[in-house]
Write a protein that binds this DNA or RNA. Sequence first.
DNA 1: TACTCTGTTGAATA
DNA 2: TTATTCAACAGAGT
Length: 266
Amino acid sequence: MPELAEVEFFRKQWDAGLDKRIAAVLLHPDKRVFRGTDAQKLQQVLPGSRLLASEAHGKQMLFRFSHGIWLGLHLGMTGKLRVAEASFKPSKHDHLVLCQKGCALVFNDARQFGRVLFHQGSSPPPWWRNLAVDVRSKSFTAARMEAFLQRHRKLPIKAALLLQTGFPGVGNWMADEILWRSGLHPRTSSGQIRGTSLQKLWRELRHVCREAVKIVGKDYSDPPVGWLFQERWKRDGLCPIHKRPLRKETVGGRTSAWCPKCQAQR
DNA sequence: TACTCTGTTGAATA
DNA sequence: TTATTCAACAGAGT
């Protein structure tokens, strides 16, 4: 479930390889995760360089290597990063393996909605410039959010929260969690949200994102009881507040769960 | 066996 | 420019 918090967790898995040289790269260039990138070149160029640093932005990750090499990863729907022993043998969905002394860095993605990007140069890659403003940062003000919602005023708020250009890192479960805490029905038009309800949405958005990164990003634990998260996957999930059955419908093309009592208004 | 569902996103179309 | 729909993929569930 790679949203903001899970991405942060997976990024850190590869910290095990920091400062170590890449001895070999295992991959199959024709795999879909390499669409649009020169996988053979990557395989040829990366050995010999060291992993220097990594960062995550929303659902995107960037790994920086010596010799001006940059690797971008997106986990799609089922992507995972992990560390394995040095003798690791890739299986079916292990699309990219960076072999190092003592360990192997593994990118696995069954459905291959994820993606590998690659760049050589002294400055960060073009696809890492002009990133959307981080929702947890100081510059993500309520006014900025309001302007974005007005630009997409016809869109149901649930769909707007999933737009990575406005809310980088927010995915399906985080969007539902945010709306539940804000008392907003997922079909509410984005343009209708103003004043106190907009302030509320802004606060809950930032709260959920920060807490999720703290909890899930640390060791992949689930958010605690009391979060909608605990109930929204269940067939007969109940609102954590007053135990009413949650409603489930497709909104903005995605399965959404909400409490008809807490989130009544449209 | 066949059909449905899934946490993403980006291309095609309106 | 923005909104909608659908396909890319594999596996799990019914």
